[in-house]
Write a protein that binds this DNA or RNA. Sequence first.
DNA 1: TTGTATGCGTTATCAA
DNA 2: TTGATAACGCATACAA
Lengths: 331, 331
Amino acid sequence: MAVTIKDVAKRVGVTPATVSMVINKSTKISDHTRDKVLKAIKEMEYHPNYIGRSLVKGKSNAIAIVAPFFSSMFSMEVLKGVEAAIGNTNYSVMLFSTVGKDANGSESLREILYGKRADGVIVLSLKVQKEVVNEFKKEGIPLISIEEIVENIPVIKVDNIKGAYNAVSYLIQKKRKHIALIVGKQCLDAEERVQGYAKALAENQIKYDATKVFRVKEHSFEEGKAMFEFLMKKRNRFDAVFCAAGDLTAIGIMEEAKARGVKIPEDLAIVGYDDNYIAGFTTPALTTVRQPLYQMGRTAFDLLISVIEKKEPYDNRIVSFEPALISRTSA
Amino acid sequence: MAVTIKDVAKRVGVTPATVSMVINKSTKISDHTRDKVLKAIKEMEYHPNYIGRSLVKGKSNAIAIVAPFFSSMFSMEVLKGVEAAIGNTNYSVMLFSTVGKDANGSESLREILYGKRADGVIVLSLKVQKEVVNEFKKEGIPLISIEEIVENIPVIKVDNIKGAYNAVSYLIQKKRKHIALIVGKQCLDAEERVQGYAKALAENQIKYDATKVFRVKEHSFEEGKAMFEFLMKKRNRFDAVFCAAGDLTAIGIMEEAKARGVKIPEDLAIVGYDDNYIAGFTTPALTTVRQPLYQMGRTAFDLLISVIEKKEPYDNRIVSFEPALISRTSA
DNA sequence: TTGTATGCGTTATCAA
DNA sequence: TTGATAACGCATACAA
């Protein structure tokens, strides 16, 4: 069996309480006893059992990250940030994927909450139900959302309006006037990007034209190829495409365009979204909008810990990060 | 405060023990009591506290994954497999990154072990020390290694010899005779890939020539570009490069080659390794070796759970997966 | 400065 | 079939 606090106490000839106080750096322990205890701890290779500690403290020293999946570029980058932020805190991270469960993660969230599996939770791209938020508030477990706006809790997101605005302004500056916009189906992100697109046009006296906005479903490469064909069939002549639906789709468009002899960026300028790993390696390299996901992960973790430890208030702030336009050669 | 088993018991007018038996599906409970208890549980929204349960059971129902980082393609794919395998088991996953700690993960591993933070551990690309393995054995916490060979515990790996062998055989079949090999610095993987390379040559009566084997350190795109230049300076004339150091480096080589007017694959055939996300999107698309990382993640998780639950013996088997050659246009 | 006693939420053993 | 009691490993209030 593993060595417990009792074993250490017995060995030193004190009570478990004393050992506990040494471990928890209580000041009211004589140097003499402390030294003896510490020595025994080392010799016996005693490590405190987190479960016992958690039970009495009502705190697990774990945080949970809940997301639809952990295999996307998006979650990977965020995770990287969290990983960096953990550093040498004594928190650990648990992962909960909602695949095969309800879409808004309620099931996983409730299990974490009521099973006391974590002291705080970060949700990624999940529309957390109001009801669930209330339950978390009631139990005093902080919840932070990344990307999706959830009411009454802190939200870490990127300024999609600005991201799109910057991209389109850039294209206009490059003398493009007939700019197609590709976005995903009506989620918040998509709508904000449409707004940014419209704003940039307006500022440059270009009329917003709804027939130049196209919707995409899967955000895939193939869809991009199909989209190019679709674009060509339109009576509109485009000199640029801002594919706010992601780089993969943008690259699909680009590949199909190239295959049909359209010169990029001369004939058609293309700007993507996400700064996917691939973007730097296509020919031509893809100009795109980068979201500071790593920073967001870091921030979310830091904020969560601060809130757990009551160093910061648990409010409904929205921390908005600025996306960056990465200018390469496709536009 | 959260509702506990006691609250439920009081409400129904039984003892906590009875409620516990209901929860744990004991058969020796009258239907009548069971119904009443179940009803109360639902009404009061009682959820068992995992920490309390863990303490008495000596089991956390969590598994830990320890890796140098969770941001690589490699760990991402493995994680995806684990994620899929978790499904509706009632295990959860904890992540432990060894960044900023000792290189072989001993620190994290010991903390997990002695802190009783997990019922089993999967290590990724980590040379676990013999000593640590023994400690795990002593405490009865199973440990499974992915990729790295660790003695006395189950290992899930890919057959690197075969991966390289297939790639080189393919090149030879395509009439290439002067094949450069790029590998990483002396880790097990690299050496196995050299073996596979040599084996394919031998089988085709091509003499193995050590001066055609080159080492790379960072496995980066830039290194690939530099490598191409380096290759050109050599007196050897190559008609193919098998870049077993990964797709990124392979793509670096390819880009630099293209920039210098070398035709791919006519003048120089290129085969990469890993089937990185990018590989399908380069021009020409990269022929490469795919490792079934997803399957490996699944297998590791399933095996670990089986071992934890004593449904399978905890041995030192080596589960070797077959890599697949993904034939595209660069070779 | 240290020891004693108690409790965290649950399960398991035994008795009723 | 159910209840009483102890135990898991630890931390803390209070007593000494």
